[in-house]
Design a protein around this nucleic acid. Structure first.
Length: 657
RNA sequence: GCCCAGGUAGCUCAGUCGGUAGAGCAACGCACUCGUAAUGCGUAGGUCAGGAGUUCGAUUCUCCUCUUGGGCUCCA
């Protein structure tokens, strides 16, 4: 029998009998690998394990515990979901069902406008498990488009995809369903159930099983608001029960950290219905944290060479006509107010106002870079369905800066900006940063190509100089200039986009900004937009979730609570509290009206960094019993010693930048 | 804006196959004065989101509105 030679990722080679598949290969390497295998990469393309390998191929086995492997599991599980729904809901139409982060979904249209409910999920889940138990094979087939149309004759969504693909009009949505090429690939599980798919898939449904259907949602067909609304079922799927359980546990943890829940529990802020959607009021404890954030930001900006400005919340429509916002962003602005023979709008951004400050008098190149900073509150009419606690809100405060500089200063300025931004973020406990560099959208941009190149290079050079890992988002820039976005990873591994540094060619033009150069001629400055928190509200929400409400001592609403053991110790407790207050700490006394255990519990639920218990021994020795958040109780700590430790702790938290 | 699910005490929730409601925690009062995560007893607290309809009677059923949550779309 003829043999073929296969190259492996480590550069080694193996001989296999002609007709061998990736399964054969995996088995020849080891039984463990064969067991973990779900698909293979053959000459750079993802393939099913069961396809016959060509001679001289380079093959890598994809195992279930890799990102690619989980992707295959999820996509295969989505097919099983579709089969179960088709069986349980005769006449249902299925559209698309891709793998996504942590799971998969599938969109359906049910007969007579029926919708899924919770009970349906249970019965679909049960049917899916039967299909998996039956270990149906995933059989790949490739058909000409005309034949595929016949196979899917009663599936209008599938036919639409086939037609788009065969006429060369396929887009990203279609790409998970079918590959490019002359023929349409399909995967068949049973004589009755076949789905359009590019693959690859696991060899059989028995390979699946660690999944959970999560929820039902509406979703537009092809994301088109005007198109039909389909019924989407979301699920998650993993390579093992342990991995699935871990994922579900992570979701529970995330839910416990939800800033809206913690905001209520810790009495930080609320969203009263009377205010209207997307608007918050800050309670005293939330306000302390916010004020500390803002004070810290102001201090850093003062030291960083920024000049503080204030601007109003309302402006005449003329301003937003000049800036262009009314032209391209009107839908995102609150409706106009007619008054004083003019039209006024709430400001959705601070930049036009800062341009007016720059333009208020003649500027010299000696003043540049001119860095204006404002905690500026803006109002944006976010659509009702998009509001989400502090993360998506209608009135919010940007830590907004606009830097006006000469084009030749921009590169240096961006470099130091990046340093500044990351240093401040570190003070809030973030350690893991990545960046995105958004480049020109060739179809929509202002300014000349050279300027774009210079700007993009300046941003790229800053990222590389800093050594920050970054991805390039081609064509994702705003039309007025390229930008850097900075993502941070929080305590449970979620990423949040926070800071942004944007280059702007447009507003200096629109406002006709000028400075007098060393050559006595007038020149146009470059403008950099920069927000560090992004929105103070959103950043606060991210911090609440990052710390799960347990703020580090420097920004905790209360840093210590003093608990007298009994009423006889009340006076000493107040003495301790007073001393701590004199040291500048935020402290409170819990009177001995309740049992000690109960007061400790209450203080712990408030997530106060230090609970200080004082009794007879402490009165005699001028000490405190220290019960730190998340640590061991320590009796008999000298009051001076505790004060010194807390000062050190706070200094340490802010020094790590 | 669209699809789905909700809205009952400050919070978390139960309940009423149609006869105007209940628990735990919190609050308040009394007793207990206690050394590291819930002492006991008691009191008060609700137009059951709002409106209309059906009904002898609606918190419960129907419709509309508002609003919250999960998604979709959107986020210059």
């Amino acid at each position: 029998m003829a043999e073929i030679t296969i190259s492996l990722p480590d550069g080694s080679q193996r001989s296999l009998v002609e007709g061998a598949t990736a399964t054969t290969l995996a088995e020849s390497i080891g039984s463990r690998l064969a067991k973990a295998a779900v698909a293979a990469v053959v000459n750079g393309e993802e393939w099913d394990l069961g396809r016959e390998l060509p001679a001289d191929a380079t093959v890598a086995i994809i195992t279930a515990d890799s990102d690619e492997g989980r992707h295959v599991l999820r996509h295969s599980t989505a097919h099983v979901l579709a089969q179960a729904v088709i069986q349980l809901f005769p006449g249902a139409k299925y559209s698309i069902g891709p793998a996504i982060n942590d799971g998969f979904y599938y969109d359906f249209e049910l007969p007579d406008g029926r919708t899924f409910n919770e009970a349906d999920l249970a019965s679909i889940d049960a049917r899916m498990r039967e299909i998996m138990k039956a270990n149906q094979p995933f059989v790949r087939d490739e058909l000409p488009a005309a034949d595929a149309l016949k196979v899917f004759a009663d599936q209008p969504y599938k036919c639409e995809i086939i037609e788009r693909v065969s006429t060369g009009a396929a887009d990203n949505d279609d790409a998970t369903e079918v590959g490019s090429g002359e023929t349409i690939s399909v995967y068949r599980n049973t004589p009755e159930f076949v789905d359009l798919c590019r693959g690859p898939h696991v060899p059989g449904t028995g390979r699946l099983g660690h999944f959970k259907l999560m929820k039902v949602a509406g979703a537009y067909w092809r994301g088109n608001e005007k198109g039909p609304m389909l019924q989407r079922i979301y699920g998650t799927a993993w390579e093992s029960k342990a991995a699935l359980d871990e994922h579900l546990h992570r979701l529970e943890e995330a839910e416990k950290r939800d800033h809206r829940k913690l905001a209520t529990e810790l009495d930080l802020l609320s969203f009263p219905q009377e205010l209207g959607g997307g608007l918050a009021v800050w309670h005293p404890k939330g306000a302390i944290v916010r004020k500390l954030m803002e004070d810290y930001s102001r201090e850093r900006h003062t030291n960083g060479g920024y000049q503080f400005v204030f601007t109003p919340h309302l402006a005449n429509a003329n301003l937003f006509e000049t800036s262009g916002h009314l032209g391209w962003y009107k839908d995102g602005m609150y409706p106009p107010m007619e008054m004083d023979n003019g039209t006024y709008y709430m400001k959705p951004m601070n930049c036009p106002m800062h341009c007016l400050i720059f333009r208020s008098r003649q500027r010299s190149y000696r003043e540049l870079p001119l860095r204006l900073f404002e905690l500026g509150t803006v109002y944006r009419y976010e659509r009702a369905g998009t509001l989400h606690g502090l993360m998506r809100i209608r009135g919010f405060t940007q830590d907004d800066s606009h830097i006006f500089c000469m084009p030749e200063q921009a590169a240096e300025e961006i470099k130091s900006l990046l340093d500044f931004v990351i240093s401040v973020l570190k003070a809030f406990g973030f350690t893991d940063f990545t960046a995105n560099l958004s480049t020109k959208d060739p179809a929509k941009y202002a300014g000349d190509d050279d300027a774009w190149d210079v700007a993009t290079d300046a941003l790229r050079a800053a990222l590389e100089d800093y050594g920050l890992e970054y991805k390039i988002k081609e064509g994702d820039a705003a039309f007025y200039g390229p930008k850097i976005d900075i993502d941070v990873k929080d305590a449970i591994g979620r990423t949040w986009q926070l800071s942004t540094i944007q280059y702007d060619f447009n507003l200096p033009e629109r406002f006709e900004l000028e400075f007098v150069g060393a050559d006595s001629a007038r020149h146009r400055p470059i403008m950099l937009h920069r927000a560090l928190f992004g929105s103070v509200e959103r950043f606060f929400g991210v911090l609440v979730e990052h710390y799960a409400g347990a703020f580090p001592a420097w920004m905790a609403p209360l840093q210590a609570k003093v608990l007298p053991v009994a009423a006889a110790h009340q006076e000493y407790a107040e003495h301790v509290a007073k001393r701590l207050e004199q040291e500048g700490f935020r402290v409170d006394v819990a009177d001995a009206n309740d049992q000690l255990g109960k007061r400790i519990r209450a203080a712990k639920m408030e997530k106060i960094p230090y609970v200080l218990v004082v009794g007879d021994d402490d009165m005699a020795m001028n000490t405190v019993g220290v019960n730190p958040r998340g640590g061991e109780v320590e009796r008999g700590v000298g009051l001076d010693e505790f004060v010194a430790r807390l000062h050190d702790e706070i200094a340490g938290q802010l020094a790590n930048v």
